[in-house]
Design a protein around this nucleic acid. Sequence first.
DNA 1: CGGATTACTGAACGATCGTTCACTTAGTAT
DNA 2: ATACTAAGTGAACGATCGTTCAGTAATCCG
Lengths: 215, 215
Amino acid sequence: MSSIPAAVPAPPSGDEPRRGRPGYDQRQVLDIAVAAFIEHGYDATSMGVLAARLGLSKSAIYHHFPSKGDLLRLALDEALTALEGVLTAPEALQGRAADRLAFVLRGAVIVLVNNISYVTLLLRVHGNTDVERDALARRRAFDRSVTALVVEARDEGSVRSDIDPRIVTRLLFGMINSLVEWYRPGGPENTEKLADDILAVALDGLRTPTADRAG
Amino acid sequence: MSSIPAAVPAPPSGDEPRRGRPGYDQRQVLDIAVAAFIEHGYDATSMGVLAARLGLSKSAIYHHFPSKGDLLRLALDEALTALEGVLTAPEALQGRAADRLAFVLRGAVIVLVNNISYVTLLLRVHGNTDVERDALARRRAFDRSVTALVVEARDEGSVRSDIDPRIVTRLLFGMINSLVEWYRPGGPENTEKLADDILAVALDGLRTPTADRAG
DNA sequence: CGGATTACTGAACGATCGTTCACTTAGTAT
DNA sequence: ATACTAAGTGAACGATCGTTCAGTAATCCG
């Protein structure tokens, strides 16, 4: 029986004052739309309930975005651009494969936590429309890059060779991506400790570490 | 440009002939509905396109199920009942905690693979409706049982104690549940080998095993 | 044959969907 | 004041949604 909480447009927050009538800008609308998409699912979120959350009429949304699909497209692009940025950082391009892999995994955790709404939306997309299919293709390209890194680390002798690298990659991202299901900002863990824990489980497993196995 | 493939009701397959007019029974309709829900998403799957996949009229579906929500409810119940069955098997109730945990994890992999459509649907549910909220509650109860098992295994000394057992459990099911995103039956792996691989990565990590660490 | 049983049709319903359009409102810049 | 710009309103649109209903079709049993 909870009524829909209507948001309020944020003040311009320290910048020089914007021109025109005050209200939401594009980014603020997008943030609230993404939250609604996650809460109800993209298809189940009507422009009507979205407008109610914004405290606006439906037609006002079309002043900021040409269509509902464009809201989704921009949100997915945001998440993908952030993830792809990890792969192009210098630490992902030079050094031992094992170190590059660890950097990318840690970077994926951090990007996911820092953009959790947008990445959550990305991970719930399954190719319904052209917009979703394009996003899926970029996600797969990202996965392929990491798989190549796993292969390098295996050839280098850093990663076990008895399991298919594609399976290893998928299990790794299974762990990391599960963050969107349960991680909530402001919890006891900070991001660094969280990334440490995930890397520890991924690399050494959850069996009790034994003394005779130094890192 | 792919046209919608209309299914055909399966013949009674060896059993004694059914009474009444031949056609789909409830289970066959449910199977096809679940496949459609996965392909397009539950909300985006209209009764119209579902009817087209069945090769029936919309109203014919209401002969088998009272509503679209009931299709979802029965599908989710199927997945949950199968998963909960793992927890009540004898091997999950006696023995060392580490062995019980390994049995449950392996059992979860097998149930997931053997009921991949229904479990996929379950894992995509996020609490939109009462039906989905009930399913989520049962899923959380399942997770709590496994977390308790992880705690026992930790107290027993079998599982590392430097990471919160709830995080360990969530990472474990992050790996296992990711199967619905990439595992396809008929691939090179059989179910046993797959479960072995997942247990191996979960327990020992993906670092190259060293000789001085016997199991 | 007739009755029982199971499966299905076609048209229609009220509701809700995403989107459009002509118009208004509230601020800054000159 | 006037112009300009950004933001928002309210009514309406055609389409599609899940569901209902009265009637029909095809099989088995006796």
